[in-house]
Amino acid sequence: MKTVLLVARREITTQLRSRTFVVGILLMLLVFGGYGAVIVFAGTQGSSSSLVLDGPARELRGELQGTADRLGTTLRVTEAGNRDTAESMVRTGEADAMLTGAPGTYQLVGLDDVAPGLRSLVADVVEQQAVRESLLAAGADPDRVSTLSGVGVRTLEPVDTELGQRIGTAFVTTFLLFFSVTAYGAAVAQGVVEEKAGRVVELLLATVPARQLLAGKVLGLGLVGLLQLLILGGVGAAVAVGTGVLAVPALLLPTLVSALAWYLVGFFLFATLYAAAGALVSRQEELQSVTAPIAIVLLVPFLLAVAVLPVDPRNPVTTVLSFVPYLSQTLMPARTALGVTAWWEPVLAYLLALAALAGMVLLSARVYRNSVLRTGARVRWRDALRAGRP
Score class of each variant (00 low, 15 high):
258 S>H: 08
128 Q>E: 13
359 G>Q: 02
36 G>E: 02
248 V>S: 13
254 P>A: 06
310 P>V: 14
216 G>A: 06
23 V>C: 08
34 G>D: 00
138 A>S: 06
238 A>N: 04
284 Q>C: 12
108 L>Q: 00
106 Y>L: 13
152 G>H: 04
296 I>G: 08
232 L>S: 11
201 V>Q: 00
24 G>Q: 02
325 P>V: 11
70 R>N: 06
119 R>F: 09
243 T>P: 04
294 I>Q: 02
311 V>R: 14
46 G>M: 15
220 G>T: 04
308 V>H: 04
183 A>L: 14
49 S>W: 14
107 Q>E: 15
230 L>P: 05
283 R>N: 08
335 R>F: 12
327 L>G: 00
68 A>Y: 03
334 A>V: 03
132 R>H: 07
308 V>P: 04
30 L>A: 13
52 V>S: 02
301 P>A: 09
170 A>R: 01
298 L>Y: 08
297 V>K: 03
62 G>D: 15
326 Y>V: 13
339 G>V: 08
162 E>S: 11
356 A>K: 00
367 V>G: 01
121 L>M: 06
384 A>W: 00
202 E>R: 01
126 V>E: 04
386 R>H: 08
222 G>N: 02
116 P>S: 12
54 D>N: 07
325 P>G: 07
390 P>D: 12
193 V>S: 03
26 L>R: 05
371 S>H: 06
37 A>H: 09
219 L>P: 05
92 T>W: 12
360 M>C: 15
223 L>E: 01
355 A>E: 02
327 L>E: 01
361 V>I: 06
338 L>K: 07
109 V>M: 10
65 Q>K: 11
83 R>W: 05
205 L>D: 05
268 F>Y: 11
372 V>W: 04
127 E>Q: 14
206 A>Y: 07
280 L>C: 10
11 E>A: 11
168 G>W: 03
362 L>Q: 13
376 G>N: 07
257 V>T: 03
16 L>Q: 05
235 V>P: 04
320 V>M: 14
336 T>L: 15
149 S>Q: 13
355 A>T: 07
295 A>Y: 11
317 V>G: 07
102 A>F: 12
265 V>L: 05
379 V>E: 02
129 Q>F: 09
269 L>R: 03
17 R>Q: 11
309 L>P: 01
137 A>D: 07
375 T>P: 09
